[in-house]
């Protein structure tokens, strides 16, 4: 070992060094305090320097963790393939029509609807795999400051998911804009609010800066928030299958239930279910909202999702600090 030497304490039972002040480590120069963190009256002190740990250490650890398991590669790889691949196929299919009747970048929605399941799965696995394998006990022994572990997990996962989803959405948007640009908006559609601002002077369909932003950064933020919500649900349920099922239910159930609410008296409930379903926000961000006269746009729904996610994360933190592991 090649650590800087530090004064070491004698083994207990060793005869006291004559003249040594009580509590002082024999061998240490006068006035040399025991190394920080050395236990009072402890019998051994390590030559490895002791550093005060902080949130940064937890970030580094979680970054190593998320990179070193295959589930990360699988879920993120499949997400990229789905978003870009499905986006590409849709662009090809649409390219045969002179006028597809939808905003330029809207085709990216369908790949991302599938891709979000991968992000949700990864979000769940980031935490539940620790419970499933027992790793959580090692982790929380190494960091009894439990909040630090969950905070680092949330941040590392969120940033990774956001960066990769943004990249996938950007590639898809580029494909759509290059394959589908050149469509001319027919006269009768030009007044439609859906195409407001996105018709060029020469009557061609274009995507505004806002639409580009919504379909890439906005959509990725939305999906990453869903992933973060999944992480919180995973931390609360501590069970992979249970948490993934819960999240898939959260995403799909509102639409499925609405499908069966055909009675006239339930019209209002049905509409609210569809309007506030997680997929509705994503569709709005791609410029094809479920209802033209919706109360809330894509960013409003994103704000709601963020609020729900924040609430669930708080619950996850509270439970983590309280429960036995």
């Amino acid at each position: 070992m090649s650590y800087p030497p530090q004064p070491s304490a004698p083994a207990p039972g060793a005869p006291p060094v004559p003249g040594a002040a009580p509590g002082r480590f024999p061998g240490a120069g006068p006035g040399l305090a025991p190394p920080p963190g050395a236990p009072a009256g402890g019998g051994y002190s390590s030559p490895i320097p002791i550093v005060r740990t902080h949130l940064g250490h937890a970030f580094a650890s979680e970054w190593t963790k998320i990179r070193s398991v295959r589930s990360t590669m699988w879920t993120l790889g499949i997400m990229l393939v789905l978003v870009v691949g499905v986006g590409f196929l849709i662009a090809l299919a649409m390219a045969t029509d002179d006028w597809v009747g939808a905003p330029l970048l809207s085709g990216g929605l369908f790949g991302l609807m599938l891709g979000q399941i991968c992000i949700v799965t990864l979000g769940v696995l980031v935490i539940t795999s620790e419970y499933g394998t027992g790793m959580i006990r090692t982790t929380l022994t190494a960091s009894p400051q439990r909040w630090r572990v969950l905070a680092a997990k949330a941040v590392v996962f969120f940033v990774l998911a956001f960066v990769l989803t943004t990249a996938a959405c950007a590639i898809t948007a580029l494909i759509h804009s290059s394959v589908l640009s050149g469509q001319t908006v027919p006269e009768y559609e030009a007044g439609d609010p859906m195409f407001k601002d996105s018709v060029s002077d020469s009557g061609e369909l274009i995507a505004t800066g806002g639409q580009w932003f919504d379909a890439t950064v906005g959509a990725a933020l939305y999906v990453s928030l869903l992933g973060l919500l999944a992480l919180a649900v995973g931390a609360i349920l501590r069970h992979s299958a249970g948490a993934i099922t819960t999240m898939v239910g959260f995403i799909l159930l509102p639409l499925i239930i609405a499908l069966f609410m055909q009675a006239e008296s339930l019209r209002d409930v049905q509409r609210k279910l569809i309007e506030y379903s997680p997929l509705s926000g994503l569709a709005s961000l791609f410029g094809i909202p479920f209802f033209d006269d919706a109360d809330m746009g894509g960013w409003g729904l994103l704000g709601m999702l963020a609020a729900v996610t924040g609430g669930m994360l708080l619950l996850a933190f509270a439970l983590l600090s309280k429960r036995d592991v």
């Binding site: 002791i50 550093v51 250490h57 580094a60 650890s61 090692t138």
Partner: peptide, 10 residues
């Protein structure tokens, strides 16, 4: 490695 990082161990 990840446990060492979490614990501030070289």
């Amino acid at each position: 490695r990840c446990v060492a990082q979490l614990s501030g161990i070289p």
